Amino acid sequence: MSAGTGPGWWRRTRLTPTILLMLTAILGVALATHHRSDPGRAGQRPVTPAPALAGATLTGERFDLAAARGHVVLVNVFASWCGPCRDELPLLVETARRWSPQGLRVVGLNLRDGPEAVRALLQEAHADDLTVLPDPDGTRAVEWGVRGVPETFVVGRDGRIVAHQPGVVTAQWLQEQLAHLLETA
């Protein structure tokens, strides 16, 4: 048995701080590259149960996310005073119309707004049929972990959040997040 391979050889081997630093850096780069190479993870949270979301809509009807099980639900947190929210609203309306036959429900959670301002925005965007739950004090948004507007969540047919987009959604993001969930209907 040679001197370097016998029992206790690892005790005789010295890992210098430079070697340890290099190994740590290589591992860090490898992990970061792996995370960046998975575009499906960007803007996604781990799959978790969606918080409760129920109450009277802007039109006085009742909405309950728990009753929407079996549907894919896109929850968009928005405000009429938010420019980016206004900009993405037509895309959300188009998405609702395109995918609703496959089981998509689009629900707006209106943050810290007055009903008149929201109604005016919906009318302007030809989105009068959009389901909107008022959140005048922001309590519901906090329960969902919202940090700003707009934010969008995709809730799968089983009631769990499967995707999250802080900021404005794009047609590409919506396609990537919804197509596979709705084509399995």
Rank of each mutant, 00 (worst) to 15 (best):
M1V: 07
M1Y: 08
A3N: 09
G4P: 03
G6F: 03
G8L: 04
R11E: 05
R14N: 01
R14C: 00
R14Q: 05
P17H: 02
T18Y: 08
T18K: 10
L23I: 04
A25H: 01
I26K: 03
I26F: 03
L27T: 06
G28Q: 00
A30H: 01
L31E: 10
D38C: 01
D38H: 01
D38G: 00
D38W: 00
P39I: 04
G40F: 00
G40M: 00
R41E: 15
R41I: 13
G43M: 07
Q44L: 09
Q44I: 05
P46L: 13
V47D: 14
T48Y: 01
A50N: 14
A52C: 07
A52D: 15
L53W: 01
L58F: 11
L58T: 10
L58C: 15
G60H: 14
D64G: 10
D64F: 08
A66Q: 13
A66C: 05
A67I: 03
A68I: 01
A68M: 02
G70M: 05
G70D: 09
N76V: 08
N76M: 09
N76F: 11
F78M: 13
F78S: 07
A79W: 00
S80M: 14
C85F: 04
C85N: 04
R86Q: 12
D87E: 15
E88H: 06
L91M: 08
L92C: 14
L92R: 12
V93Q: 13
E94N: 12
R97N: 08
S100V: 01
P101E: 01
V107A: 03
V107Q: 06
N110R: 03
L111N: 08
R112G: 06
P115E: 05
E116H: 07
R119P: 05
Q123P: 00
E124I: 00
A125E: 09
A125N: 04
H126M: 15
V132C: 09
L133D: 13
L133H: 07
D135N: 14
P136Y: 07
P136R: 06
P136K: 02
P136L: 07
D137S: 09
D137E: 11
T139A: 14
A141L: 08
V146N: 14
V146T: 10
V149P: 06
G156T: 14
G159E: 11
I161K: 06
A163F: 05
A163T: 12
P166M: 10
G167Y: 14
T170E: 04
T170G: 01
A171H: 11
A171G: 15
Q172H: 07
Q172C: 06
W173Y: 11
L174Y: 02
L174D: 06
Q175H: 14
L178A: 11
L178K: 08
L178P: 11
A179N: 07
A179T: 13
E183I: 02
T184D: 11
T184K: 09
